[in-house]
């Protein structure tokens, strides 16, 4: 667009300055992490701090990688995050469909109970969940890290809202077209809400990827630990090796960025046409 009025040009300049400042502001910690990961042990604790490393210590990455069994952690994390995400998508989609489209006795009460659980802080559930897992003898297994996260009230709620906004006429039309509920769900409802579902998938994957406390509680052996535990390895009585923490963090964040780039199209696509006019 071409603006001709001086006031419009000034408005544009202000807009972009604010946007650029905002972008830099959010990027800064990330840039700092990358730069810090390349500093030497001395430089990273130096006061005043330097912005650009005097010498690029790429060896930090190799050192960090060898400090903990990262390949194993990586596999564990990918496995847990993937299974959890697929599972939580399945349960959320099915329950959201039930809440938004089906009529069954006690629907409102069950939904209210669902919502009520959102009011309970996660930390309070930690102990009870831990006891349950112990009694089930699931300690130090993948099950312990996956099963408790297979249902998520917030995602169910989110998808219920999205599904409810799909016009009833589409559901009725599908019925006349001899389409079963399940088929309607996966052929029409899910593709129509793929943006919302992708968002849930990303949130779930990132949440699982970043989880620290729960996996630490329910695992004992090094073989079952996840990536976030690897970061703790750099802390010792002698202090924290920040440059290695930063290097490991950089490695950790790469898969998430890849996932995001891969799914970005769906997130940015915005709400699509709803199929109904007027």
């Amino acid at each position: 667009m071409k603006s001709t009025k001086p006031s419009a040009i000034i408005a544009d300049i202000v807009k972009y300055v604010v946007l650029i400042a905002g972008a830099l502001f959010t990027l800064l910690p990330f840039v700092w992490m990358v730069l810090s990961s390349l500093k030497s042990a001395n430089e990273i604790v130096q006061i005043p701090p330097t912005m650009i490393p005097r010498k690029f210590m790429f060896s930090n990455y190799a050192e960090a990688w060898q400090e903990a069994p990262f390949p194993r952690y990586f596999l564990n994390t990918v496995f847990i995050a993937t299974v959890t995400t697929v599972g939580v998508l399945l349960t959320s989609i099915l329950s959201a469909f039930a809440f938004s489209r089906l009529d069954f006795p006690g629907k409102k009460i069950i939904f209210s109970l669902f919502m009520a659980t959102l009011m309970i802080p996660g930390e309070m559930l930690l102990i009870t969940n831990f006891i349950t897992i112990t009694k089930l003898k699931w300690i130090d297994t993948y099950k312990a890290m996956i099963v408790p996260w297979l249902a998520n009230v917030f995602y169910t709620y989110l998808l219920t809202q999205f599904f409810s906004s799909v016009p009833e006429a589409l559901y009725l039309a599908a019925k006349v077209d001899k389409c079963s509920d399940l088929k309607f769900l996966f052929k029409i409802m899910v593709p129509m809400n793929k943006n919302a579902i992708t968002t849930v998938a990303i949130l779930s994957f990132i949440g699982s990827w970043n989880s620290f406390l729960w996996p630490l509680l329910v695992t004992n052996s090094t073989n079952m630990r996840v990536l976030s535990h690897g970061l703790v390895r750099f802390q010792s009585e002698a202090g924290t090796k920040y440059q290695l923490v930063m290097a490991a963090s950089c490695i950790l964040v790469v898969p998430i960025i890849i996932v995001y780039l891969f799914l970005r199209k769906y997130i940015l696509e915005g709400m699509s046409y709803t199929g109904v006019k007027g």
Partner: peptide, 27 residues
């Protein structure tokens, strides 16, 4: 409804937005 041999056209058409015209008609 699916066994009544009826064709139904809705006020707002209720086309499946993610499908092409052909897919809508063959559905």
């Amino acid at each position: 409804p699916e066994d009544r041999e009826i064709g139904l056209v809705f006020q707002n058409y209720a086309l499946y937005p993610h499908m092409t015209v052909l897919d809508n008609i063959t559905f």
